[in-house]
Amino acid sequence: MIEIRGVSHRYISGDETKIFEALSNVSLKIESGTFVSFLGPSGCGKTTLLRIANGLITPSDGEVWIDGERVDGPAPDRAMVFQEFNLLPWRTARGNVEFPLEVQGMARAERDQVVTRALAQVGLDRFGEFYPHQLSGGMKQRIGLARALSVGPSYLFMDEPFGALDPQIREMMQLELMKLWDSDRKTVVFVTHSVDEAVFLSDRVIMFGTSPGRVIADIAIDLPRPRWTDDEAIKTSPKFIQFRNDIWRQLKRQLVAMPDA
């Protein structure tokens, strides 16, 4: 279980003249084994909250507890898929997926197996020897996903993992992710800008507002599972459409309220 308790975060510019309030007093409880999406306008602090929850940055105020322990740094059972891929340009796709396993001291033979499986899971088993600069944006993103999956984390933080994919692959990857998730029910926190994606994947959609970043709505999505077996039926069901319209209406209000909209 992830407990976010009164988290606020301020970014301070290098010369300490500007203070930017990225998150203000966010409290959330995320039950283990649930799939939760963060949805909200650009700049509302979704990435910031993910980095805080993963222990990459310490919040200005408040704290995060995971499984009864206070988060004060990264842990081996948590993995992150980064919005900007963050692949190592001097390593092949394989090498990138292998990186966390190598760092965590897994034996080479075992590593090879795990990497091969992770690459297959994202449909890139034939691209193992390619370097990041030889891959498309969507492929890089999937390598980032494979890298996070390779460590077999109980908590998966995914920051717009499908943002760079074309719509068809994106839907295929959503199905893959659902299938995968149904097999082991990790706790997933998934950031997205797509309302449909959030509704289709999640048990809960948490909506954020800007200036400062804060939670404005928390919507339980009680669509039946599994959802990947007949995704068309799910996506055309009245309930799905109802959720989507509700969320979109609220999101629109946020977007209209944005200063630069």
Binding site: L56, P74, P76, A79, V103, V151
Partner: peptide, 13 residues
């Protein structure tokens, strides 16, 4: 690139 350092850090390097 600081993001790569952060990435490595996130994977417990």
């Amino acid at each position: 690139d600081k993001r790569l350092v952060e990435t490595a850090h996130s994977f417990m390097a």
